[in-house]
């Protein structure tokens, strides 16, 4: 059995290999390491904690399923997870945009007090999520990875499997699209004096 202290010093790929070989403590260390980031990315894109938890669980299931086939050195676990979470969130945003009227999106079902305590922050989070749902999906993905996750353009290029130049173009157009969608809500979002 791999000791938890040793596991903590291993890379994500090494931990995944240890899990595939039957070591559950490696899965525990890996989950503790990756899940907060996965969860944060999903909440920022979806604006809803309950949906974000579903996405996070789904992303981790895909990670466990791919553990035995993972080839160290080919792709970073974190890069792969960014892509998986981003795609899962975009899928949900698309479905939301197709099926659900915006009024009901703006009022999330999850009303637990720890979701976002500040009402203003909650309104902004939901407004951004609604806007991302209405944008072309590659633009939404690029904007979210650049401005919500703080990744560099080369990192985003790897995640989205496109050139750095394409990332720059997508993020620029994405921000213009966001401005067009959200500028009319300036007052509601509390940026009247910005």
């Amino acid at each position: 059995m791999l000791m938890t202290e040793i596991a903590a010093s291993l890379s994500d790929a090494d931990l995944l290999a240890a899990y595939a070989a039957g070591d559950m403590s490696a899965a525990q260390v890996l989950s503790a390491r990756l899940l907060p980031r996965v969860m944060g990315q999903a909440v920022r894109m979806l604006g809803d904690r309950s949906e974000a938890e579903d996405v996070a669980q789904d992303a981790m299931i895909r990670l466990w399923q791919n553990a035995a086939r993972w080839r160290t050195g080919e792709a970073q676990v974190s890069t792969w997870l960014y892509r998986v979470v981003s795609n899962l969130c975009i899928d949900r945003l698309r479905r939301r945009a197709r099926n659900v009227p915006l009024e009901s999106v703006a009022d999330p079902a999850d009303e637990r007090p720890d979701v976002v305590t500040d009402m203003q922050a909650k309104t902004r989070l939901m407004a951004l999520s609604e806007a991302l749902a209405q944008m072309p999906e590659r633009q939404a993905q690029a904007v979210a990875l650049r401005h919500l996750e703080g990744l560099s353009n080369p990192e985003i290029a790897t995640i989205m499997d496109i050139s750095v130049r394409s990332v720059e173009s997508l993020t620029a157009r994405g921000k213009r699209a966001l401005a067009a969608l959200l500028a009319p809500r300036r007052k509601e979002l509390g940026y009247d004096d910005a």
């Binding site: 976002v116 989070l125 703080g150």
Partner: peptide, 10 residues
Amino acid sequence: DVRRSAPSDV
């Protein structure tokens, strides 16, 4: 603001 305020606790 969204980047700063969105919760990521598990």
